[in-house]
Simulated assay, not measured.
Amino acid sequence: MPVPEKNRSFTQLIEFEIEPGQQPALVAALSRQTERLAQHHSGFLSASIQASDDGRRVLNYLQWQTREAGEAAFQGFESGEQDFWQLIRTHQAKTVTFGSFQVLHSLELSHDQALHCNLVG
């Protein structure tokens, strides 16, 4: 069954493969860039930056209210103060994988430890 467009959120996943010595600087740079995106683009919902234990991968997860909001923010990411392509070169990324996803189901744990299921549709 199709999910109504108005109820869908949009997620961007960007995975970096790097040399372990580059991980702390890349995480810091992505943190700064993600904060700028969140402050300057409407439709921002959440973000996380995750680092692998072996130091070789970093995952940047960004969630937006709509696909349009995410795509507009990414255009800003490409041409911002430290553009995205410069970020890749500076931190010597071996590979960068992009993924875009519509969120159809999510779970949340509330402050009172209750589990909330959000089925979109």
Results as ranks from 00 to 15, higher is better:
S31K: 12
Q50G: 08
S48T: 11
R8P: 00
G99S: 05
E15S: 06
G121M: 10
K94F: 06
T90L: 04
I49C: 06
G76S: 05
V103D: 05
Q82W: 09
M1R: 13
F16H: 04
S48M: 07
A69I: 01
Q113K: 14
F44W: 12
P2I: 13
A51L: 03
H105T: 03
W64C: 02
T11Q: 14
Q23C: 04
T97Y: 12
A51D: 06
L13G: 02
E5H: 09
G43C: 05
P2W: 12
V96M: 07
P24D: 10
E81N: 06
E78S: 11
E19P: 01
P24L: 12
E68Q: 13
Q50D: 10
L115K: 05
T95I: 03
E35A: 14
F10E: 02
T95N: 10
P20Q: 09
W64V: 01
A29R: 11
L109Q: 14
S100I: 04
V58E: 02
S48R: 15
P20C: 07
F10L: 07
F10K: 02
S79T: 15
F77Y: 09
A25T: 10
D83S: 02
R56Q: 15
S31D: 09
T90H: 03
F16M: 02
G76F: 02
A47E: 02
A47T: 03
N7Q: 09
F74S: 03
V27M: 08
V103I: 09
L109N: 08
C117W: 10
E78Q: 15
W85F: 15
Q75E: 13
E108V: 01
L62D: 00
R36K: 13
